[in-house]
Design a protein around this nucleic acid. Structure first.
Lengths: 247, 247
DNA sequence: GCAAAAGTGTTTACTATACACCCATGA
DNA sequence: TCATGGGTGTATAGTAAACACTTTTGC
């Protein structure tokens, strides 16, 4: 099949990227009581990938990850954390770009630096779902949120990267109080609890959860939120500490 | 100063290593109630470095780390854990090899792939001090244990890499039960406690520590150890689970 | 008033800590 | 028999879990 996909100068490595090294970010969001990841669909294919990119020769890896994240979400200040580096020798040998993008200049692509073995530094980002403006990159045509429990076919080892990121997120949930980065500025206690339950994967006691959260003295109670439902209106809360930790 | 240091083919990258990517391992040992790290002295200099190396083009990063570790310690089965990847753009611009090794073929070195910017994947290893056979590499002339509280001048950002590794070790001490990898097959309870205290940096209660360890049901009590001291002989213990977790 | 969901109070269980005591060993 | 360090028992404090109850809201 003849395709004419513009890879925006990536094939020639015009921007002088470090070869064999990539960055992939698992972008987590929370919407309708579900944990979501932002994925990119590889051009004209049924295969999806994480938000990824490369590191410029004079660029630090953290700034590179932030740059990539900005390009995919439009967000400037996001919680970003490096969690693992993936470097199995065969990690980019299944569901490869070459397999998926069997476009015109195949020969050029197969010989390009893009088609080589890559070691990828994994980051995960926690963002406010409602603020994200999903934007595809040169390798993709759509950016879309997926439920973590309903992931599409994915390129390389990106599925495993997501699961490992979730593990890290779980481990950091209590110690680093990272969950708040997935919520808007204000939220109710039941919303916060639902977030925790979704991430951890098991239910929590309503009363004990509330007590625990309030006892940490990190929440500021604002006014009540009248939803129109026939029950007591929940309070709105605001996270006291700044919502973003720089990497 | 004219020096003739043999870098064993590294200058020409004969072994086809991935450029700009290195692996550095913080090798922890425990000896005389002190936490130690194994360091290598850069040829004819007062500057020391971690055990490091490069990743071959067809080699996974974990096998590469194990290979390097084997070469520096002679050990086959070691507890090894990837903890962080260091990729600041300036990380290899201070205390560089070029500064330290101002040897004969300077021009060749300055232009070589070795003198470029490197992203380094950090691992830490936990080994039985008494079993290690410290062996320098092509860049160093001695391999020696250093007390963590008395580190010498170090190349690049290796000092920060050690501190970050210690943080990870502390965080994993209780959850992953990694401490046992720093001890011989058999050990006494006071020895184990001393290890924990040294890693954590604060004292623990003798009786409660023992109870906690025994309650986890991971220790097997062997016979008593008669040291010749004028006090009750401590029991020897053995760790039930296998001492090594593969990476 | 009633159902639904939010919020608060109280009891219980568990674990971590502190304190006290006993045991074995060699001089 | 005494000092020394190892081992065990018990009380207390602090926290986490479970249970029960009250409050607010719209119909």
């Amino acid at each position: 099949m003849e395709r004419n996909v513009d890879l925006g100068g990536f094939l020639e490595n015009k921007q002088n990227f470090i070869p064999h090294l990539s960055i992939d970010s698992v972008i987590f969001g929370f919407h309708q009581d579900q944990l979501k990841v932002l994925l990119l669909r590889v051009h004209d294919s049924g295969v999806w990938s994480l938000s990824g990119g490369f590191v410029r020769m004079e660029e630090g890896i953290d700034p590179a990850a932030l740059r990539i994240l900005r390009e995919r979400t439009g967000l400037e200040n996001v919680y970003l954390e490096q969690y693992h580096t993936f470097g199995h020798e065969d990690r980019s040998k299944k569901n490869t770009l070459a397999d998926i993008l069997d476009f015109g200049h195949t020969e050029e692509f197969r010989n390009s630096w893009l088609n080589k073995r890559f070691v990828s530094i994994g980051y995960y980002a926690l963002v406010d779902f409602s603020k994200v403006n999903p934007t595809p990159d040169s390798f993709s045509d759509i950016a879309e949120w997926f439920d973590l429990k309903d992931l599409p076919p994915m390129i390389f080892d990106h599925r495993e990267m997501i699961y490992k990121a979730l593990e890290s997120l779980r481990a950091n949930l209590d110690t680093k109080l990272v969950g708040f980065n997935l919520l808007p500025e204000t939220f109710t206690m039941p919303e916060l609890q639902s977030l925790y339950e979704t991430i951890l994967g098991y239910p929590l006691r309503r009363n004990n959860f509330q007590r625990k959260m309030l006892s940490m003295d990190i929440l500021e109670r604002i006014e009540k939120l009248y939803t129109g439902a026939a029950n007591k209106a929940p309070y709105l809360y605001k996270f006291k500490a700044p919502n973003v930790e720089a990497v």
